[in-house]
């Protein structure tokens, strides 16, 4: 292969990839464009790529004030935070025992984790809804959070990570006089930090973006999470006002996108975990 040939090949690659990149970003870019359009431009028969007049963040302001969007976002943050904290508190000790201890009946627990791993969460929406209804958890934060406090995937990931920590480190810590909990918190948790990062990433994406469960268990706008908020938008008057609607949609997707762009390497490594299991 000549240098010239490889340079052309490289150029071609970048052309193809660049076109693909534009396609991938197109919906987002289009949404951004519309979110800055004044109302009269949206349906104007004359096509303008750029807004005919600069309205600044007016549509964003309208989305935030004319709808409970701030409430949705706040709910989303709170619910995701609570879910992730619970998942970690439950999964870390469990994964440690599964990886490092010899306890009777351990295989049974492991089996339950594996079952949980292959059951798609969406499939359990119906029975969980029945249970939530019985427990009086419909339209409560508890109803949004409690069903997801256990993460079989998290236990699985962390168990794999704990298994890779050498036993000698744990034995050294026992000789140093550390208790089991202290070994776990001080030595092992930092050692499996990448796996914990992966779990947080995967969980955050899954639950911030989850539409099905909130639409099942939440009935009032005051408890809605962002994706369910989108569903509510459409039936409200703002739904026909495209500028603010897309400004709202962008603000709902923005937190995760920002996090992703800021921490892309770790974020993608975390996601690649899903494949390496």
């Amino acid at each position: 292969m000549t240098a010239r040939g490889s340079r052309f090949a490289g150029l071609g690659r970048h052309l193809v990839l660049g076109a693909g990149a534009v396609l991938m970003l197109l919906p987002l870019l289009w949404a951004v464009r519309i979110s800055f359009l004044p109302a009269e431009d949206v349906f104007s028969p004359q096509f303008h790529l750029l807004p005919s007049r600069w309205i600044g963040f007016e549509n964003y302001a309208r989305a935030l004030t004319a709808s409970p969007l701030p409430r949705f976002l706040l709910n989303g943050v709170g619910v995701c935070l609570a879910i992730i904290v619970c998942q970690l508190l439950v999964a870390i000790p469990c994964a440690y025992v599964l990886a490092k201890a010899r306890v009777r009946g351990q295989w049974l627990l492991w089996l339950a984790v594996l079952v949980g791993l292959v059951i798609p969460p969406a499939a359990l929406a119906l029975p969980l809804f029945i249970m939530a209804a019985q427990a009086g958890l419909i339209d409560t934060y508890a109803g949004l959070i409690l069903p997801w406090t256990i993460s079989p995937l998290g236990i699985f990931l962390l168990r794999q990570a704990f298994s890779r920590v050498p036993d000698e480190i744990i034995e050294a810590a026992r000789l140093d006089g550390l208790g089991e909990w202290e070994i776990l918190v001080r030595l092992l948790v930092p050692a499996v930090a990448p796996a914990i990062g992966a779990l947080i990433t995967i969980s955050l994406v899954a639950h911030w973006n989850d539409l099905l469960w909130p639409s099942v268990v939440v009935t009032s706008a005051s408890k809605a999470t962002p994706p369910f908020g989108v569903m509510l938008f459409q039936v409200q008057e703002i739904g026909s006002d495209y500028g603010p609607l897309l400004a709202g949609a962008i603000m709902i997707a923005a937190p995760l996108l920002a996090l992703f762009i800021l921490t892309q390497r770790r974020f993608l490594d975390g996601m690649a975990w899903l494949g390496s299991k």
């Binding site: 991938m24 919906p27 987002l28 289009w30 949404a31 994406v205 911030w208 973006n209 539409l211 962002p226 994706p227 369910f228 989108v230 569903m231 938008f233 459409q234 609607l245 897309l246 709202g248 949609a249 962008i250 709902i252 997707a253 995760l256 996108l257 992703f260 974020f267 996601m271």
Partner: peptide, 12 residues
């Protein structure tokens, strides 16, 4: 696109 909230992106 895999990270972007699909419900919001559906609107887009």
């Amino acid at each position: 696109p895999s990270v972007a909230t699909l419900a919001a992106m559906a609107v887009a």
